[in-house]
Design a protein around this nucleic acid. Structure first.
Lengths: 282, 282
DNA sequence: GCCGAAATGTTCCACGTGGAACATTCTTTC
DNA sequence: GAAAGAATGTTCCACGTGGAACATTTCGGC
């Protein structure tokens, strides 16, 4: 995945006045040489070795001052539009990557625009939406942040929706058919094993668990398989919870809020409530 | 507002075989005589008094066996399409209302259909939606239940959305402009006085209260003005809450759930949490 | 007026959503 | 390899929505 930032080195070497290379909205990517193909239509077939060697020496000294111009091939590789000599000289200089501007064709721009519009308008199920985001990222090299800006969502939301594509396909089908919600799917992603993901998905359907119930269920499952995830609770509150749990013999949760919080004692029958109240009042 | 149901009396008197009067989807309304206008285009201008008297006697004995046919005038009144003799005889018999079938014109059906479609499709703000429901009810005599079925919502939701039309217009503007949500508006409706409704609305905007915070705030306001609404809690849980509150010196809530429930102790600082825990553990 | 049914009014809160806050990984430079 | 910043991954839960459950009013028949 190409980076938007250059790091400090190249940025300071590029001339500010080079407007043709750095347009107002141009982003300079660093593209590995192995991903760059020569231009199929390059009329020039021979290059002077001496000339290239001189350029390579200069590059070794100063780096590449002007990004090459690339066009995306759609399979993760790029085709040179401009900068063949720089490309060859960079090889001679044993560089591994080039600064490049990726130019989209008119067709590509149109496809991008249509994709974004469809996402914003269509009543897509979460799987469709995730696939659309993936397409934006794969075909146009957009980061999650860029996708999020274009479709009007938060970056974390794009990440969350995209993650569901790593679920087993059976579970994905449940989400696509609206048997499970995105909230459920996200909870299931907390399980690492595809088998348990499918089995928990079935359990949620069978018992009609809400998202909250599913969250709790996953917590219990993780505890059972010795893969408990680190809790975000402080050790102080966890200690208090433990001691209260021992004293009262029931589930205890301490939930902090903006101002203080809530101490929650769970009871499973009216008799238990009476018992808990008696303990407190005694 | 016309009733859909007949009561037992008329229903048992109407002949089951009278298909022209009771079509498969026909609803029989009971319309006060004072709301019924004679047909402007009734060719017959004179009616035999003896004939009418005989019919009036029969009506006194048996009631009206066949509903008249009415057309809605749009101002809460109806025009007779068929049944002039029955209408006159009912007057003679001192009836106050007639069983009637309301016939919609083709134009009316088309308007109804369009209205429903627009509600289902358009991105209406809550005020617009409420007005649309009101229109369906006023112009077509639909009950909340009937509106709800047509637009695909629950009857209670239609009722709740419609209620916001009784808010002060300033508050309605806040809802229409999405400064306040429907949830906020519903909470404000719990206040009886227009002045306090507006003042609380402004408070919600100023302090960016969430719906939950607004609910709590309204509760406190009601307590302050000696207009506390009757709580839905059972006296047993209220009693337990009181005793715990006295013992622990903090807010206590008992929330029952499908299986048992939660006993919630509120704390406002870490020191208070420690104190509560100490009381329980002592 | 009484009663029962229908219709409407009202409050409270469980729900899934969306994302804040944190965790982890990747990339670039030195 | 270390450090810093960018990008991505992940969990937990506050939020407004929608309506369940209950309350109140209206209507019609007797």
């Amino acid at each position: 995945m190409e980076k938007k930032a250059l790091g400090r080195g190249l940025a300071t070497l590029l001339p500010v006045s080079d407007a043709t290379a750095i347009g107002s909205a141009q982003t300079i990517h660093t593209i590995p040489l192995t991903h760059i193909l020569p231009n199929r239509f390059q009329p020039r077939q021979t290059f002077d070795d001496q000339d290239l060697k001189g350029l390579a020496d200069s590059i070794k000294q100063h780096g590449i001052l002007q990004p090459v111009l690339l066009r995306r091939k759609g399979d993760g590789r790029y085709e040179l539009i401009a900068g063949e000599r720089r490309f060859r000289a960079a090889k001679l200089a044993n560089l591994s990557a080039l600064p490049a501007v990726i130019r989209h064709s008119k067709d590509e721009e149109s496809t991008l625009f249509s994709l974004v519009e469809n996402i914003q308008r269509a009543d897509l199920n979460p799987i469709e939406e995730a696939k659309a985001y993936q397409r934006l990222r794969d075909e146009f090299g957009l980061t999650q942040e860029a996708v999020a800006e274009r479709v009007g969502r938060d970056r974390a939301s794009v990440a969350n929706i995209s993650r569901i594509l790593s679920l087993p396909s059976d579970v994905q089908d449940m989400v696509a058919s609206h048997q499970l919600t995105l909230g459920h799917a996200k909870v299931i992603l907390g399980l690492k094993n595809a088998e348990s993901q499918l089995s928990v998905a079935r359990r949620i359907l069978r018992d009609r668990l809400s998202v909250r119930e599913a969250e709790q269920f996953i917590k219990k499952e993780d505890r059972g398989s010795h893969k408990a995830k680190p809790s975000r609770k402080t050790s102080v509150t966890a200690d208090l919870e433990d001691r209260l749990r021992t004293r009262l013999g029931t589930k205890v949760a301490i939930r902090s809020k903006k101002q203080g919080g809530e101490l929650i004692l769970r009871y499973y029958a009216d008799e238990e409530l009476t018992r808990i109240v008696d303990v407190i009042l005694s």
